[in-house]
Computed example of a mutant assay.
Amino acid sequence: MSITHWNDVTIDYDKVLDTDESNVVLLATAVDRLPAGAVDVLDIGSGTGRLTSLCRAARPAARIVGVDPAPTMVTAAQAKFADDDGASFLEAIAEDLSVFPDASFDAAISSFALHHMELDAYDTAAAEIFRVLRPGGRFVNADQFCRVMGPVASRERALDVLDLLTAKARHYLLEACFERMLLQIDLLPRFLREDGEILTTPEYWRDALKSAGFATVEIIATPPAELYNRVIVADKA
């Protein structure tokens, strides 16, 4: 999972994302899918702890552990939750959760993080998430997806990414803020080159999760439809 460019992010990430109602709705939909009785929750790709804060509000009694590959993000989250004994953060990636024993968590959740993985890491990440969940555990992934996959040089894939992400940039300018639009535009070359920003179809994640052993996988679309944001909910038997 590429982390270099997220170590160098200088914007007020939380403030900018909070202006984006589509992102707020996406995360609210994901947090709403956390099991009501979850005691131990893993936040994968926890970043600055924005999703962790929402999980804490929804499940105030839960112990939440956040993992992220970017040291600067981990440091920011640790500072934000310095007075919260129930939240902790460390460096780790979805493909390698070996710091945790089997069946450590009731739920795992992630937002706008796992599309940074290389495609050949999906099966490994899905298996690791499955392993650290207890029987009956749930994985919830809120992320952005695409409609077409293929080689980087594929004209069909490039056109889909270009159309989708420029439409997003326009939406963010009109509905969120200038900085949110700029963040999308700045990342566009990385998405086109698949340089640490690699979109998949939601079905690609679904198939990886099913192969890992999850009993059921649900794909939930959140508005507006043209942004192609989805929440994927996978339950372990």
Score class of each variant (00 low, 15 high):
residue 2 S to V: 00
residue 9 V to F: 01
residue 14 D to H: 04
residue 15 K to V: 10
residue 18 D to I: 02
residue 24 V to P: 07
residue 26 L to Q: 06
residue 27 L to S: 10
residue 29 T to P: 13
residue 30 A to L: 08
residue 30 A to R: 07
residue 34 L to R: 10
residue 43 D to Y: 03
residue 48 T to Q: 07
residue 49 G to Y: 11
residue 50 R to T: 04
residue 52 T to M: 09
residue 65 V to D: 14
residue 65 V to C: 11
residue 65 V to W: 09
residue 72 T to E: 02
residue 73 M to K: 07
residue 73 M to P: 14
residue 74 V to A: 08
residue 76 A to N: 05
residue 77 A to C: 01
residue 77 A to N: 02
residue 82 A to C: 01
residue 83 D to M: 08
residue 85 D to Q: 06
residue 91 E to H: 02
residue 92 A to D: 01
residue 94 A to W: 05
residue 96 D to W: 06
residue 96 D to Q: 07
residue 97 L to N: 08
residue 97 L to T: 05
residue 105 F to D: 06
residue 107 A to I: 07
residue 115 H to Y: 02
residue 121 A to Q: 13
residue 122 Y to H: 13
residue 123 D to W: 02
residue 130 F to T: 00
residue 132 V to S: 09
residue 135 P to M: 04
residue 142 A to C: 09
residue 145 F to T: 11
residue 146 C to I: 13
residue 148 V to K: 10
residue 158 A to K: 12
residue 164 L to A: 03
residue 168 K to G: 02
residue 168 K to T: 09
residue 171 H to Y: 15
residue 173 L to I: 02
residue 174 L to K: 12
residue 175 E to H: 15
residue 177 C to K: 04
residue 178 F to L: 08
residue 179 E to W: 01
residue 180 R to Q: 10
residue 181 M to E: 08
residue 185 I to T: 08
residue 186 D to A: 09
residue 188 L to N: 00
residue 193 R to Y: 05
residue 197 E to N: 11
residue 198 I to D: 07
residue 198 I to N: 14
residue 201 T to N: 03
residue 203 E to Q: 06
residue 209 L to M: 08
residue 210 K to P: 13
residue 213 G to I: 04
residue 219 I to E: 14
residue 231 V to A: 11
residue 235 D to Q: 13
